[in-house]
Design a protein around this nucleic acid. Sequence first.
DNA 1: CGACCGCTTGACGGGAATCAAATGGCGTGG
DNA 2: CCACGCCATTTGATTCCCGTCAAGCGGTCG
Lengths: 253, 253
Amino acid sequence: MFLTDYIGALDTRNSMNVNEGNCLHTLFAKQPAEHLSASQSLFFEGDDANHVYEVLDGVLRVFRIVSDGRRVITAFLYPGDFIGFSLRETYLYSAEAVTPATIRRMPRRQFETAVAADEDLRAQVFAKTCCEMAATQEQMVLLACKSAEERLCSFIRRHMQRVTMSGERAATVDLPMSRQDVADHLGLTIETVSRTFTKLINKNVISLDNPAARHLLRIEKHGMLEFLAGDNDDCAEIRQQGGLVMYGGRGRH
Amino acid sequence: MFLTDYIGALDTRNSMNVNEGNCLHTLFAKQPAEHLSASQSLFFEGDDANHVYEVLDGVLRVFRIVSDGRRVITAFLYPGDFIGFSLRETYLYSAEAVTPATIRRMPRRQFETAVAADEDLRAQVFAKTCCEMAATQEQMVLLACKSAEERLCSFIRRHMQRVTMSGERAATVDLPMSRQDVADHLGLTIETVSRTFTKLINKNVISLDNPAARHLLRIEKHGMLEFLAGDNDDCAEIRQQGGLVMYGGRGRH
DNA sequence: CGACCGCTTGACGGGAATCAAATGGCGTGG
DNA sequence: CCACGCCATTTGATTCCCGTCAAGCGGTCG
């Protein structure tokens, strides 16, 4: 993945990143690039939140360890994402590299003064925060009422949207995170994730070119994948009617 | 609940709301108060996000209707909360009153220009956004790996923290939302919520003074409730060791 | 009184967790 | 080169929590 790539990726998530005036990416460009090896930590939950980060390349995971030792991956981060905008005292989560990754870091103080002084930057921080909030709510919906298959299909589609450059529909996708990572992100166990993968393969929704490369997926039926993800937005017409009283249930089919 | 109350509630959620210079509450004070009757809608998912709101009194629910007609309540809102800070084009969710409620509304444009012009206001908006983000992530953790009992206990405790004035430990709590509301917020069914309530009553963790007033809970064992909520933060000492490789599982006991 | 509503309770089944074992790739070392 | 162990993943057998369907209960209102 090259420099031009993540600029594109950034644009896809954020409709207002034209290069008018200052932009977040150029703000971070002054900082030296740092490289992380796979599974290397960036910071830990509870640490003083002294820096904010830009992801240049690779994939990171952001997670919390809950009381009984289990891990909840609240998000994966991709090139063009930023970390730590909406924090004040301490990090609420840990961050690690999934793949070898490149990032830039900036002291929070420096970041805050730069943003306070520039209208454009504030707008971009705001936009990024809105995206993050929307993504988190989407994940809440997934966890609140989707089946294992729906969760996995949703996840594959989201991942594809982040790694494929705008528009094109790639036939094959690399899922760099482990099955355990996927499980911890989807609120499932590794066994269920594995079983659901084989189910999708049996249905020929996806396939593996090389059984050894289990992270390389070929998407056989995009439409089916979308359908199985279960977020068909066909409820727009009911929304405004007000007479909707059919709530309840988790609808696991 | 009186005027002084929600100022207190606001302070509990937001460590920096001393009345230095402008504050969000005084900004909204210029707007007329509006009253909502129970279950009255404030706006719908997909509407143009033309206003931002302050909750003065009562409880609101914020929710999305997913494709198969089910409802996911992403949050309940209490006096001192604001709605719509992190939005740009359209509302991502609907909002309704749970109880009779009082709110103030302000046109988004007006809000944005006021915030853009004032450093203090920006800081407060930022703080509120951080709180919202933290709460949303907490909810993700709940949905990702907690059992029905843990979810309900967590919810009761959170609700208590929002409605009781700072510090005091009230013996009895009013849960104004219906069982269905609770279910849709916790990713459960109404039957499971009901069963879990009776389980807690049988364990004498909570009790009902009057069986007819099922929304009025007496908390018999605060410690037990906290324990059953399952967010004992006893993992602080493992966090930094780095050698933690015991992830996985949903741990439903 | 009877209909309706919110809630509870019961019976049952299913989907995912749990426990356990097998597979298969990969690196190390003899 | 092959044996061995390690690791991630898969697969199987079983359990169990919670969803589903259905009925019952009390309270309120017309």
